[in-house]
Write a protein that binds this DNA or RNA. Structure first.
Lengths: 225, 225
DNA sequence: CGCTCGATTGATCGCCGTCAAGGTACGTGG
DNA sequence: CCACGTACCTTGACGGCGATCAATCGAGCG
């Protein structure tokens, strides 16, 4: 896993330095690493589990603006305050770096900085693609897109295999959390999941089990409108 | 302006190198610099004018995922293909760098790379904040937010002043383009602008003239729901 | 002055949010 | 192992916001 994370860019001494300033922390599901508005004092790497990046709106509703999987980077170097809440969706493990020494490492290690730049660029791209979804697509399409994205990421994380047809996936999100990502309500999520089941595109197993039975059908729904 | 752009990070020899590989180009309003799916062969800096980053949906509708103002950076180093159309909204001037030599410069110039990293991080943050808007806010709130954002950016660009009450702003977007940014239809944009006028928050002058008469009222609408 | 494209205004419809009532998974304790 | 309770999820009825369809208006240009 190390080679997919930031640390893939590092040589031996840099790795040692990284290990020196970092410390592991385990988060329980629902536990938050930081809140919007906090002083920005840390960066981190996700080692295990899934976390969300979210903001609260005035009316109490939440909008999740990103999901974080193993090997993803957390934090925003050079900023003074934190822009979003970061909360563990599942039990999660992260490797935390205090921001100041981390920035010092960045300054001294061009390879690390380049890696972070690449990562940030592709995160920006992800965010923009999702913006298109939320801005223009129907509830069904958004949900299909979310499921496909989750399935892909979980498969990568799990064991490097592509996600196979009918394989059981453990969803890292509750219905409420899926609604927060997609910009929908929990009721709509439930109904649209029902439709996807009726269409035979997916099957559910308990609250968090999911099987994708017809990837192409699901993709078609995602692309439609 | 140079000190707000990427080039602010450069020393004299680097600036000369940059000038050597870059070439200016003028775009007419509506002209595109690149299209989604193209080979990724260029990066650029916006010198003047406003451009949009957009994607087309299956049904022909467009979603604009970002606006680009003077000093903003265009392009995605390290990627093979282009993710979005880039189109000039107004007559615009850009400074184009072929991607390969630009990446070579990045590799040799840590300060330039750091500057680009900072820029990308804040662009990611902008994108996520807008995601929250599009995901959760009413049509009126989205439009108010868009107007405030445009006013701020245009004021910065224009002459460094904060945007004053009642000052005339030339909108760089048509109604259709505003709709594409906000994820609305042109009719809804028109109606919501009407409401904002009725409320005395703004005044319009011809198609593209805008005055913000009550910034606080506008901000309240933006924050509401 | 007239033409054309963009903007406005009106009428109607449908998706999805809201409110409300069960129903089901899953953990806890007997 | 089963009963129970709670939190999560599903399902239904209804209403409103914004999309869609359609007609008119008006600005800006030749």
């Amino acid at each position: 896993m190390r080679d997919r994370s930031l640390c893939g860019a590092l040589d031996k001494t840099a790795l040692a330095e990284m290990a020196r300033i970092g410390r592991r922390r385990t988060l329980a599901a629902g536990e938050s690493l930081q809140f919007e508005g906090d002083d920005n004092i840390l960066c981190a790497n996700v080692l295990d589990g899934v976390l969300k990046l979210s903001s609260l709106t005035a009316s109490g509703g939440a909008q999740t603006v990103g999901l974080l999987y193993p090997a993803d980077f957390i934090g925003r170097p050079y900023a003074d305050t934190v822009d979003h809440d970061i909360t563990a969706l599942t039990r999660a493990e992260v490797c935390i770096f205090p921001r100041a020494p981390f920035e010092r490492m960045l300054a001294q290690n061009a390879a690390l900085e380049r890696q972070l730049l690449r990562r940030t660029l592709s995160e920006l791209e992800r965010s923009r693609r999702w913006l298109l979804f939320v801005g223009r697509k129907s509830a069904g399409a958004r949900l299909a897109g979310l499921l496909i994205d989750i399935a892909r990421r979980m498969a990568q994380t799990g064991c490097g295999t592509d996600f196979g047809i009918g394989q059981l996936i453990q969803l890292p999100l509750t219905r409420t959390e899926m609604a927060d990502v997609a910009g929908l309500t929990i009721e709509t999520v439930s109904r649209e999941l029902g439709k996807l089941k009726d269409a035979g595109a997916i099957a559910t197993e308990g609250r968090r089990g999911l099987r994708i039975l017809k990837p192409t059908a699901l993709q078609a729904i995602m692309d439609s409108e």
